[in-house]
Write a protein that binds this DNA or RNA. Structure first.
Length: 582
RNA sequence: UGGGGUAUGGUGUAAUUGGCAACACUGCAGAUUCUGGUCCUGCCUUUCCUGGUUCGAGUCCGGGUACCCCAACCA
């Protein structure tokens, strides 16, 4: 027979559409063959799994193609931002395993942005508008109706310049004046209808202090920041597609301001950032928006941003996900321009795959019932060696104590077993994992039929690792010595939401009932999202392990040691169950 | 009804860019097993509709349909 050469052809994973574009740009030497990206969170909340997708893209593509990714805090709105969030964001990114080139702030560019804005005014491309926000909104028109020009649109540049400076003096009440770009009030693209460049906030900024009273808007900040910083590929999510033309326009203007024009021998296409958009992450039974997550924390629906039910990176971390499992999940869903709703099962599957190789095996009994081995001597104990992880023998072993009285799972015992049940029932042999084979003699119940304890004998010659253990026994269960295990609090979680798409459900409820915020969220909250089990037991070995240790409770699921846990009060979070086929 | 986007199994993503529609997850069945896990095997299910170009269309063209984004002094 002919032998075919088996080639585990390092299955070439195809590049996503942005990677393809980056590769092409690099090959064509665009922007001098440089690659620079940025991750630009607004420090107004904690990062969530959707940000993790953006992080994996921004940092990942830079890493993959030899570029650099900066972390840029998009801090143009001091009303909502806080330094608390800056530290949390940095932590989360590093925990995910990424390192930024430079840490920068949009506020680093406030002076440049201001000077550029003054130049725009002098060029006749910007003007100070003194109308009310209502009037401005009314003049904006609708998607199907052109807007109308502001009466202030053609005021002299000198006047606008004087008023613009006035806007920053602290003497102008917020809302009284704004700086607008003079573009096209009839544009079919709403963003071109004389967009706002600056507004008065009269509020100190946590970084720039009292220097500014007027602050630039996102659209007048982002592209320019990218340009000033040297970003080549500015990658964001799909909702910014309609902003792209405006982004390009402002970049063209700022290049002009800097004298980078064809007349000066500069290629208009070169040395400029370009915006690319991918689909943001939507997960079923999960609410992603920072605004709503903030409400959940403020209303006490969850216990803070790192509540294990939260889709925040710190919440998911506390739930017991490893960074690798998050990245694996993100890799599995990919980047496209299709507005997908991903199944949370994909995320759980990624966690199982990763944790299977990572988690330390330990025995925990969640719903204990007593088993007594009548022929095992009272007072006798044995220290048995068990593997930390059968997938990784190099992870070593630890010991567990065996004795006459054990805890086992209530669901591992039946008085009236169905034919497919092959664990404990009267007359059936079962293997105690890592220990002996037992023979169930009697299942003792109370008057109401509840199992009280199990009476059995053991085969002294069947100890794991000995010859006598090599007997075929269908059914292996985990166990804990009553006298040697520790009580444990186990926190079990379900999705926070009862509907697949809480974002849409809440939006619709708001519309139909005229309520907002938490009142529109309550009808869709899962009352059983947190279930605390204080009656569990676990191996004494658990006491020696630090918070955030990845564990597999054998035959049950993956668990993590909560930071609330102390040696005297062990607390575990359920990450995800084992796939089970019971 | 303006502009900008998007449609491939139950879910998400591929398809050497016009050449046998595949991968992962889910589900089901089985084998192995000192975890009813893992590993292994098998099965189910796919190109929005409709015309056209072509030897050949998921891919190109025309016409539909559905869904998403845009009218914050948020980002």
């Amino acid at each position: 027979m002919e032998e075919k050469e088996f080639c585990p052809s390092e299955e070439v994973k195809s590049l996503n559409f942005i990677e393809q574009r980056v590769k092409k740009d690099l090959e064509e030497g665009r922007n001098g063959g440089r690659l620079q990206t940025r991750f630009p969170p607004e420090p107004n909340g904690y990062l969530h799994i959707g940000h993790a997708k953006a992080i994996a893209m921004d940092f990942g593509v830079a890493e993959k193609f030899g570029g650099v990714c900066n972390l840029r805090m998009d801090d143009t709105n001091p009303q909502k931002e806080d330094t608390e969030y800056v530290e949390a964001i940095k932590n989360d990114i590093q925990w995910l395993g990424f390192q930024w080139g430079k840490l920068v702030y949009a506020s680093d560019y406030f002076q440049d942005l201001w000077d550029f804005a003054e130049w725009c005014i002098l060029q006749g491309r910007a003007y100070v508008d003194e109308q009310t926000s209502e009037d401005i909104a009314a003049q904006k028109g609708t998607p199907t109706q052109a807007g109308t020009n502001s009466p202030f649109r053609d005021r002299p540049a000198e006047e606008s310049l004087r008023l613009f400076r006035e806007m920053n003096s602290g003497n102008v009440e917020p809302g009284k004046m704004i700086l607008r770009a003079k573009i096209d009030m009839a544009s079919p693209n709403m963003h071109f209808r004389d967009p706002i460049m600056y507004r008065v906030l009269n509020m100190p900024h946590w970084r720039t202090g009292n220097k500014w009273n007027a602050y630039p808007m996102y659209d007048f900040t982002h592209g320019q920041s990218d340009y000033l910083e040297g970003v080549t590929h500015s990658i964001c999510t799909l909702e910014f597609v309609p902003h792209r033309d405006l982004y390009d326009l402002f970049v063209t203007w700022i290049k002009e301001w800097r004298g980078e024009t064809p007349e000066n021998g500069h290629d208009i296409e070169d040395n400029r950032p370009r915006q690319f958009e991918f689909n943001k992450l939507n997960l079923n039974y999960t609410l992603m928006s920072k605004r709503n997550l903030l409400i959940l924390t403020k209303e006490g629906v969850v216990n803070g941003w790192d509540d294990p039910r939260m889709p925040t990176i710190c919440g998911i971390r506390r739930r017991g996900y490893s960074p690798e499992s998050i990245l694996r999940f993100i890799d599995s869903i990919g980047y496209t321009t299709f507005d997908a709703l991903n199944d949370i099962k994909l995320m759980e599957a990624a966690a199982r795959t990763d944790l299977n190789e990572r988690a330390t095996r330990i025995s925990a009994v969640l719903d204990p019932v007593k088993l007594i081995i009548t022929n095992y001597p009272e007072g006798k104990t044995e220290e048995l060696e068990v593997q930390n992880n059968p997938e990784r023998p190099e992870d070593g072993t630890h010991t567990i104590t065996f004795s006459r009285e054990l805890w086992i799972e209530r669901e591992d015992v039946k008085t009236e077993p169905d034919p497919k049940f092959f664990r404990i029932y009267k007359g059936k042999e079962t293997r105690l994992k890592g220990a002996y084979i037992i023979d169930c003699k009697e299942v003792h119940c109370n008057d109401s039929g509840e199992i009280e304890w199990i009476e059995c004998t053991y085969d002294p010659d069947s100890l794991a690792g000995t010859e006598g253990a090599n007997r075929k026994v269908k059914g292996t269960i985990h166990w804990l010595s009553c006298a040697h295990c520790l009580p444990a609090e186990v926190r079990n979680y379900e999705c926070l939401w009862t509907c697949e798409n809480p974002r849409d459900a809440i939006k619709q409820y708001e519309k139909e009932h005229g309520v907002r915020g938490i009142d529109a969220m309550r009808p869709f909250l899962n009352p059983n999202s947190l279930n605390i089990n204080t009656g569990a037991f676990i191996e004494a070995y658990a006491r020696t392990l630090p918070a955030f240790t990845y564990l597999q409770f054998q035959r049950t699921g993956y668990f993590n040691i909560d930071p609330d846990s102390t040696p005297d009060h062990l607390v575990f979070n359920s990450t995800v169950s084992l796939k089970d086929r019971k």
